[in-house]
Write a protein that binds this DNA or RNA. Structure first.
Lengths: 336, 336
DNA sequence: TTGTAAGCGTTATCAC
DNA sequence: GTGATAACGCTTACAA
């Protein structure tokens, strides 16, 4: 790899002149420019990104930290962000944070130490306080989950609305014992969806069965435990609201054969092909990822401009076959 | 962020001494070391990775370039590699290459220009010639697809064996008109699996119906076109061998209701939950990703050592419900 | 318009 | 054992 120094020697100019030509500074004689351009070309000059990055104090890279890239919802966010980043000459660093909140901070900080141009983050743990230190150095954009503290951009989904929508859908099919299954309780998303679940119950005047609320379902083992708990006795629910796609992917294989209606917050690739086809609340991860990446780019390009901090996207119900009328004496009510 | 210079001033030593202490050089008096250590701690020194990276000419990062992180097979590879990388203090740069082979080289090269410590690559296009230039600067490990040129590490799967296995499974169920559906023909993997398909036919003395071989199925539109072609006339196949998980995820929703047996090369999350549950050839992407990342680390740590270049992993048949005996007068044969 | 010099934070060289 | 000094490749003052 030839350096600017090489090019300068080759063209018979100073290193600075090469820099000027390469960076399209106008203060160069056309004649000189030509000569340098030719040299640049002959020597196949490519800037050393590590040098420019070092000088600038930042790398042309957007860091993306998500719970798990195997989760198709987050993969879709990352993919969409990647696409936008690429259009702006930025690469993308995707890292999975994993289940352990203890590791999360250190993973994110090691990412941050690479001095990326921006960070897109879907945090698992509760306390993003440590990010305060970094906020003035690099634009940080939250996706899926809004931070508990102010001063950060976020693109999220209306969890409460979605929770209401899902629960009302089940209620409208006549269900009165509806289980709620989710992942971490500490998560904004789970809390919001649970709130929606409660709200819908209240509005319908149906009491919530607290023993049917199960959280921390984020792998196969815990999904099995959840199923045992729910369907052990004779007080089994007639419907299940699974509060996120990841939980659903573990849970659904275990309960789809039971006579129980299921709705999932979060669509995923094969949801329409599983049996029965899953009714879901769709959240458009592609849109979230694109918006987040665009925001990062905007923040970089116009540091002074003000943007709306919190963007909350609407969700929609995608009706398929997994919710049926409850078989009981209680008549179905129409959706509120 | 404090620098070594700050720490040096604080401890009353030279910058180089700080460097020595930080890098655990033995040539430092215990007394000096203590003083520096205290200073390091007081000032919360963290090395500037961009500076170290610049100096070293490489970043503590493993670049991973795969066709699409939405493809669960490749996502699993990336995830597994990520895990290993993390254990070695390396971050991971994951980028999707997309469908367009024209962009691929430029994406990979922009990744390479970041001077990662290693590259894990699942290329889509045919010609990896341009990688020759980089091979002596950074360890490059191919996954899923072996390069057409020598001199690179690769971790792949026995495509031919898998193709034979899949096809023989269908043949053993009595099928005699078996379609082959895949993605790019240019891909090693597709070619190998097709070879296996042909081999199995030959061994069984069953002629291959060339019109039932369809490639380039890598999105919904093309999957629909494939289905139209296959099931248009009265010469429809009784079975389909889908040569990779990605194609299957587009194809299967369209044909699962038809009276046709299906086997997929490549398992994916919901394959056992779709209806009918898919019989697949499993390839263990987690193993591939781990091995690849470990190889990158090994190459970095022991540049002189020799390693086996090509590692080919066995595949196995996971039998579920999507392959049934053909309804015809031809009796089923037993598996060879 | 062009060039010189300095510096980003780190590590390598080579004196002392 | 310790510390000047230079160097990595680039850009930003500041001169000329």
């Amino acid at each position: 790899m030839s350096t600017m120094r090489d090019v300068a020697a080759y063209a018979g100019v100073s290193q600075k002149t090469v820099s000027r030509v390469f960076n399209q500074d106008r203060h160069v004689l056309p004649e000189t420019r030509e000569r340098v351009l030719a040299a640049l070309h002959d020597l196949r000059y490519t800037p050393n990104i590590l040098a420019t990055g070092f000088r600038a104090g930042r790398l042309p890279v957007i860091a993306i930290a998500i719970p798990d890239i195997l989760d198709p919802y987050f993969a879709a966010i990352a993919r969409a962000a990647d696409e936008i980043a690429l259009q702006h000459g930025l690469s993308t660093i995707v890292t999975s944070l994993g289940d352990d909140p203890a590791h999360e901070q250190s993973i994110v900080e090691s990412l941050l130490k690479l001095s990326p141009a921006g960070l897109i983050l879907a945090p698992g743990s509760g306390d993003p306080e440590y990010l305060r230190m970094w906020a003035d150095k690099v634009p940080i954009v939250f996706v899926d989950r809004a931070p508990s503290i102010a001063g950060f951009d976020s693109f999220t989904v209306d969890d409460v609305q979605g929770g209401v929508l899902a629960t009302e859908h089940l209620l409208s099919h006549g269900h009165r014992t509806i289980a709620f299954v989710g992942n971490r309780t500490s998560l904004q998303t789970g809390a919001g969806r649970l709130r929606g679940y409660r709200t819908a119950h209240e509005r319908a005047g149906v009491p919530v069965r607290e023993d049917l609320i199960i959280t921390d379902v984020l792998d196969d083992t815990r999904a099995q435990a959840a199923v045992r708990t729910l369907f052990a006795g004779d007080k089994s629910p007639t419907a299940v609201f699974s509060a996120n796609a990841w939980s659903t992917m573990f849970l659904y294989p275990l309960i789809r054969r039971q006579d129980v209606s299921v709705i999932s917050f979060g669509d995923f690739p094969m949801a329409s092909v599983v049996d029965p086809a899953l009714t879901v609340i769709d959240q458009d991860p592609v849109r979230i990822g694109s918006l987040a990446a665009e925001r990062v780019v905007d923040r970089i390009e116009r540091p002074a401009r003000r943007f709306r901090r919190k963007t909350v996207l609407e969700v929609s119900l995608v009706e398929r076959d997994s919710c049926r009328d409850v078989k009981s004496s209680i008549p179905a009510i129409t959706s509120a």
